[in-house]
Design a protein around this nucleic acid. Sequence first.
DNA 1: TTGTACGCGTTATCAT
DNA 2: ATGATAACGCGTACAA
Lengths: 328, 328
Amino acid sequence: MVKISDVAREAGVSVATVSRALNNLDTVRPDLAEQVHRAAAQLGYRPNTLARNLRKQSTQVWALIISDIENPFFTAVARGVEDTAQQNGYSVMLCNSDEDPEKESRYLSVAGQDRVAGVILSPHSASTNVSALNRIPLVVIDRTLNAPFDVVLVRSRLGAQQATKHLLDEGWHRPACITGPQDAETATERSAGYLQALEGTGIEPQVQYQRFRSAEGALATAELLDGKNPPDSFFIGNASLALGVLAELSKRGLRPGVDVGLISFDDAPWAPFINPPISVVAQPAYDIGVQAAQLLVQRIANAGPQAPREVNLATSLIVRESSQRSTN
Amino acid sequence: MVKISDVAREAGVSVATVSRALNNLDTVRPDLAEQVHRAAAQLGYRPNTLARNLRKQSTQVWALIISDIENPFFTAVARGVEDTAQQNGYSVMLCNSDEDPEKESRYLSVAGQDRVAGVILSPHSASTNVSALNRIPLVVIDRTLNAPFDVVLVRSRLGAQQATKHLLDEGWHRPACITGPQDAETATERSAGYLQALEGTGIEPQVQYQRFRSAEGALATAELLDGKNPPDSFFIGNASLALGVLAELSKRGLRPGVDVGLISFDDAPWAPFINPPISVVAQPAYDIGVQAAQLLVQRIANAGPQAPREVNLATSLIVRESSQRSTN
DNA sequence: TTGTACGCGTTATCAT
DNA sequence: ATGATAACGCGTACAA
């Protein structure tokens, strides 16, 4: 491997000058700089990232710690982060915590030890301990943390409220809510929006808290439908749950958009294409990633302590057929 | 930060002994080793990864370069890679090439420069140039390369053939094939299997080569259905295409499993849950990731040149309702 | 503006 | 078995 001293010899200058020239430190005579660049190009010199990292005690790598890489929401976030990182000269290390607090803390520890330049984290719980990061810049996404960090969130509650109200406006009379487990902030925010929408309507709320998975969606639907006051429509807290709900409904011959109303959080890739197309509350997942990345870039640039910032993104209601009340 | 010399002082030994003890180099007296470990623990010593990397001229990081992070197939692969990497003490850097040759080559270049320990790549094309990696171990997945490297593939052609034959066995008479672009090996392998299945049956093959996206799936379906010899069933080359096909069919009031037969490559998360449940040729995506990772671990361990290995994984036919010929 | 020389923290070599 | 010390390649304080 050709190193900096080789370039120095070739260009007839010192290694210091080479370093300065290659880093564009404008304290070097233009013609010399030119000479250095030519020598470097000719020898095919590539600076050794490892040595630079040691010297600077930091890397050009971010750790992105997310709770479920197979969830389309998070992959969209990841893409937003990755694109933005790329543009700013960073690479991103993918860490899939699988909702496992132990894996999460292991990753936080590794990130600290490897001196990554920054971390973007969707924390398992509000009490996740990030002290292993020491002073590495951190941006939190999707859920809040019991500590003051930059965070980007979406207005889930408002989105849920709008979705439920939309169901009512369409003429459905007894919407139920199926959402995630009560220890997940995203789940409870969504049921809270649902409850708000029902306030003062005299409709008795029915909420099922389940794990965010298809099987549980089916289960909750069956339970609701077999209960004493079966709902005529559903507000569903995420796409996996929605899949289970759909399966259970079709098993019972209940057609969304006709016999029953249905709207779900998250605009999954399949939502517009199945029969009937599913109405959703879309989260700006890609944009969440972009915003988080931009916050991180700024946080890294301004090393000093600084008031934490909170970015709140809006959801958008996408009405397709499943939530409408068709005459047939 | 506490460093190795601090531990040495605390334990009353030299830095060399600390290094040996901490790396379990069994050439150190047991009691001394014990003493070192205690000192390290007490001081909260964490070895500096950056310094170690420089010294060893290598990292404990893999680059995983895939063509589409939002494709569930690749996220499943990624999870397999990530889990296995984790178990072997590696981290994985996620690189989303987006099917863009330029991004791909930039990532290959960065991987080479950063001296990652290994690379797993789903190449954009067979002629992708990986010379920037210098001598870094490489494992190729999903598609082959015009060069001798370890590779893990799935028997796409056989899977496609089985799927098409299944359609025939179910009593469909004119299956068509909708697959990806002709410059994608995965696409042509699948049409090849379809063609094989039709050999000698007297059925005239109809193949549509489109980009692997939903909109194109719908387009191809419309074209086929409006053609002079409309098919009565479809073998579809991937899940995104299938979504488009489904949309077009439902727009025309054609019910899969009743009016028309349908089977698709890739067991997408939604496939079992929609109405009717979709029959698929499932790829062992997670396992592909695991196998690739294991190949890479071995390749890294045995530094010497070694004959490239090829792992071929089988698909599995999952028959649900969309491919069956219902009496109703 | 340029060059010399040291430091980053660890591992590996070579004596002992 | 242990210790002293030389790399690893780069960036930068300091001197010129």
